[in-house]
């Protein structure tokens, strides 16, 4: 079997003295959508930030596309083709939609058709209509689309997607799900942090469940859906 696109093992992280992750291990293969499920504060966001190099972390293994990325600066990890879509969106509100996308632009790696604006606007039709608008004037759902589109402009092989469905209206959640499916169709791998089981189940192939900074469950999405016990223990109250 070929090596996974992203391999994480023994990942631990802390904010100062506050420990958040205790040896997280997970992996994702090319073209695979993997859900990282867990309640608030379980360590989902920190896991993503530790992978992309935004929080100090230690790991036994942290490999992406054959590269050891443990000591790399964030921009170098991004240039290897690992995109990051933060939960708090962090779009550049002073910039227009078009300019936000321009910041994300990076040449495509060989062997892949690049994301063009046209292609992106097919996935996110709302964005096409507001190209020149300032991002601060967008609704939450539109901002969420923009932050994903901005990362796709970098032509990544994999996207770390943090709670894309949070706080959004149902119709937008549906578009988010379609976007994830479109990304998969393009051959991208996605690591999706979610609390919303329905949303995750609709788009993911496999799932991990994280609780108190450690992985408690790993399996296919179908298995997780069928497993009442795990769901009760780690996802609901």
């Amino acid at each position: 079997m070929t090596e996974a696109l992203l391999t994480v093992s023994g990942l631990s992280a802390a904010y100062g003295q506050a420990k958040v992750l205790f040896g997280v291990s997970l992996e994702a293969r090319r073209g695979e959508v993997v859900a990282l499920m867990g309640r608030n504060g379980a360590g989902k966001t920190t896991t993503l930030k530790a992978i992309i190099g935004m929080v100090e972390a230690s790991a036994e293994t942290l490999r992406f596309d054959g590269h050891d990325i443990r000591r790399l600066e964030t921009f170098r990890i991004a240039r290897l083709g690992l995109g990051y879509v933060p939960e708090e969106r962090r779009i550049f509100t002073d910039l227009t939609v078009h300019e936000n996308l321009a910041v994300g632009l990076r040449p495509a790696r060989s062997g892949r058709a690049p994301w063009t604006l046209d292609k992106l606007y097919k996935v996110f039709p709302n964005l096409a209509e507001m190209e020149g608008r300032r991002a601060s004037a967008m609704s939450g759902g539109e901002q969420q689309m923009l932050t994903i589109a901005r990362t796709l402009m970098g032509n990544p092989d994999m996207v770390l997607l943090d709670e894309p469905s949070e706080g959004l209206a149902p119709v937008i959640v549906e578009q988010m799900a379609e976007a994830v499916i479109a990304m998969k169709a393009e051959g991208l791998a996605v690591l999706l942090c979610e609390q919303n089981l329905h949303f995750a189940a609709a788009v993911s192939d496999r799932a991990y469940v994280i609780e108190k900074g450690a992985i408690r469950y790993a399996g296919t999405m179908a298995e997780l859906e069928a497993n009442d016990e795990i769901r009760e223990a780690y996802l609901t109250v």
């Binding site: 992309i52 935004m54 600066e73 964030t74 921009f75 991004a78 240039r79 990051y84 933060p86 962090r90 550049f92 509100t93 002073d94 910039l95 300019e99 936000n100 321009a102 910041v103 994300g104 990076r106 901005r150 990362t151 970098g154």
Partner: peptide
């Protein structure tokens, strides 16, 4: 210009600009 857009973006959120692959 791209340089100008990057300056404005970085003024708002340097870290995110880095996460989008820009060498600061």
């Amino acid at each position: 210009t791209r340089f100008g857009v990057l300056i404005r973006a970085a003024t708002q959120d340097r870290e995110m600009v880095g996460a989008l692959g820009v060498n600061q």
